[in-house]
Amino acid sequence: MTGQTPEQRRAIAAMGRVLGPDTLAAVHRLYRADQDESAGAPRCAGADLAYGEHDRQRLDVYMSEAIQRDVSADARPVLLWVHGGGFVRGEKASPDHPFNAHVGHWAARIGLIGVVMNYRLLPEAAWPSGGDDVAAAVDWIVRHIADWGGDPTRIVVGGTSAGATHVATYLQNGTLLASLRGAILLSGLYGGVPVEPRDTAYLGVDVRIAPSGIAACGLPMFLACAEFDPVRFQDDTMALASAVRAQRGDWPPMAVVGGHNHFSLACHLGGADNSLADLLRPFLHETCLDPTGDIP
């Protein structure tokens, strides 16, 4: 594994902080070949498994070939991944956008069971539907993941952008289970800065998510944003980190990941660029530590 190449860094810097379909497509082009090469053989052991009644309430399960072959292997920790998409789009896996599936591949490669979920979208579903869907997916994992080689007592839930907001909503509103070990929040909106008009359709004008409410869950968190994120995502990440420090006395592990923007922060995970993976592994190690002291 290697870090970000100089060419990738220059290309990301040239894109600036602008969001939109053109930037997203440029990031996809930049990392697609790298991701396809790094993902290796497909590791999707179960596709489109229903965790609810809605057509969007589906998830995929990823595990290594070794775990698939050895049904007697020790149960593995679980990483649940929640994609972004501005509350209106996004897929757990598709030919045009494989990057969320690559998070499942990456989880499997480092010895975890990867679970990548879809959730309900606008205009049908507004806040707090995404958090409710995360709660339902966690409940499915607790009830069923042992059938897929997973340990229902060691679950970390993570998400990017809108997905991070959904995870944060779950942390604020959900009934946390003893099996949940930690949360990974990348460039989400947490109610710490004014909401832009584009986001009121989902979050509402009277925003009810708040950094203090998220921090109150008491769960270990890893927080990150990108060097070229729009400033509001950086400020909201710091607002949540400050709320965690105010309530717990210490800063949570966090990072501003250099050389990346809002989209590439998650899109490069699982590829040859290990900028984020190197930061996440110590957090996963600490929260999901095996009795043997390692992952895997």
Rank of each mutant, 00 (worst) to 15 (best):
N173T: 12
G213W: 05
S129Y: 01
P211N: 09
D199L: 11
A136C: 05
V134N: 03
D235F: 02
V134K: 01
G159P: 07
L171V: 13
A246P: 11
R232M: 14
W148G: 02
V244M: 07
G218T: 10
F233V: 07
L177R: 14
G131T: 13
R248F: 14
A226C: 06
V142A: 03
N173Q: 13
D206V: 08
D229M: 06
P230V: 13
A137T: 02
V138P: 02
H144F: 01
V205P: 03
L171P: 09
L177N: 12
A168E: 00
W140L: 00
W140A: 00
A162M: 01
A241I: 06
D139K: 00
L180K: 02
A183C: 10
S212M: 09
A210L: 07
V157H: 03
S161I: 01
A216P: 09
V167A: 02
G131L: 04
A246Y: 11
V231S: 15
G131A: 06
A243K: 06
C217G: 15
V156R: 03
L219K: 12
Q172H: 07
R181F: 05
V231L: 15
D133W: 03
L203E: 09
T153S: 15
R181T: 04
L177P: 06
L189N: 12
V193G: 08
T160Q: 14
P152S: 11
G182Q: 04
V157T: 08
G150Q: 10
V134P: 02
